[in-house]
């Protein structure tokens, strides 16, 4: 049986097995730093690097450069290769200033677009920050102005809170002059406290984000791999296997007494 026909017949089973081995290989670091983890770490690095090269060639350089340049005869695209090659002069002590020239080209292009970025990104936020602070009934559209939605008392209170937080946090970032004024000192201090709401929200959200990634892996091990490898009872079999492995790790770890010295505090 040739490799091609073997893969044709078995690839759908090989993929989950490879996936499960890679997953467990990387998780081995949870016990302690080890050679298996290092192996899979380097495998990951190599595959990711190779994938980046292949995709950049397939999706960018091949259609945008090589095909027009080589197949369609657009010889002037050789200038792009020469310009791209300037980047690599960064490794030369004598010529690296020319690499800064091409980097400058991109820095300039990016800097020139900052006006558009500011106008479309920040500007709408500035005028949307002027929120109605007094409750009022809905105002119908008339010539010269569109309809205005009603502002309830709770809307107005929320808008006032929004404005206070916005101004307090902004005052915290006034570094252009020394904050000697007691009022400004007070708002800046409140700004620091109010920012804690954001950091707390980010922390709570980060926990969900990280857990979601772990759940995805467990879903793969139990349901995708388990069902493929062991049939209908696969998830249960994999779960028992995982628990046994965890028990063994705990036994070995605790027997040695506490965290391994090389491990990080967390």
């Amino acid at each position: 049986m040739s490799l091609s026909s073997y893969l044709d017949a078995h690839v759908l089973h090989i993929v989950p097995w490879v996936g499960a081995i890679c997953t467990l290989g990387l998780y081995s670091v949870l016990y302690k730093e080890n050679k298996i983890f290092r192996f899979f770490e380097h495998l990951f690095l190599g595959l990711a690097t190779g994938y980046m090269i292949a995709t950049t060639w397939n999706d960018v350089l091949l259609p945008k450069w090589w095909t027009p340049f080589h197949d369609e005869g657009k010889w002037w695209l050789a200038f792009a290769l020469a310009a791209g090659a300037l980047y690599y002069l960064i490794y030369s002590k004598k010529y690296n200033w020319m690499a800064r020239m091409i980097i400058g080209l991109f820095l300039g292009a990016s800097a020139g677009q900052q006006f558009q970025i500011f106008v479309n990104d920040v500007w709408p936020q500035i005028y949307k920050s002027f929120k109605p602070l007094v409750p009022h009934a809905a105002i119908a559209a008339a010539s010269g102005h569109p309809a205005i939605k009603a502002v309830t008392t709770s809307d107005a209170i929320n808008n006032i809170i929004f404005m206070v937080i916005l101004l307090c946090v902004m005052s915290y970032f006034f570094f252009s002059f020394e904050q000697k004024n007691s009022f400004l000192k007070g708002t800046a201090k409140s700004g620091r406290w109010l920012m804690m709401f954001t950091f707390g929200a980010i922390f709570g959200s980060t926990i969900m984000a990280r857990l979601a990634l772990l759940i995805d892996r467990m879903d793969f091990l139990l349901n995708d791999f388990g069902s493929d490898a062991f049939g209908d009872n696969g998830p249960k079999i994999v779960l028992v296997g995982l628990l046994a492995l965890t028990g063994l790790v705990l036994y070995l770890g605790l027997k040695k007494g506490g965290d391994d010295p090389g491990a990080d505090v967390v």
Binding site: L30, Y31, L211, L214, I215, M218, D219, L222, N223, P235, K236, L239, L242, L243, T246, V249, L250, G253, L254, G258, D259, A263, V266
Partner: peptide, 20 residues
């Protein structure tokens, strides 16, 4: 000073058992 692996085991249980 509980061993970090005990915490890891608890987390593993919490994300696997609900799939049953």
């Amino acid at each position: 000073t509980v061993d970090r692996r005990v915490l890891y085991a608890l987390l593993l249980l919490s994300v696997t058992l609900p799939f049953m």
